[in-house]
Amino acid sequence: MLVLTATSVAILSVMALALARALKADTVYDRILGVNMVGTKTALFIAVMGFLGGRPDFLDIAIVYALINFIGMIAVLRFFEYTATDGEPGDKEQSS
């Protein structure tokens, strides 16, 4: 039980670091990278939480979360791929 707690704390801190990376990023792609990492870690975290609470039903939510995260990521990337080619190449994101 202690191990599961330690693992979930580690995953939470990884998520916090990825979120910090996404917040203070130079380019929009760094932000997406950070957000993607938060997403995959969330699926893992839900699975670990299910074991910690003794309720393996959580695993269904983890499966759905993993799939939704992937589809959302592809959608966001499609959007930026088309808008980025219209602007100047190598254009850094101005607002931060």
Binding site: A66, N69, M73, I74, E81, A84, T85
Partner: peptide, 22 residues
């Protein structure tokens, strides 16, 4: 699922960064 989707997401990210001129 995670092993199938995460390399695909990484590849899509790198590809769109490269096409975006990074």
């Amino acid at each position: 699922f995670l092993l199938l989707t995460s390399p695909t997401a990484s590849h899509a990210l790198a590809k769109s960064a490269r096409h975006g001129g990074l």
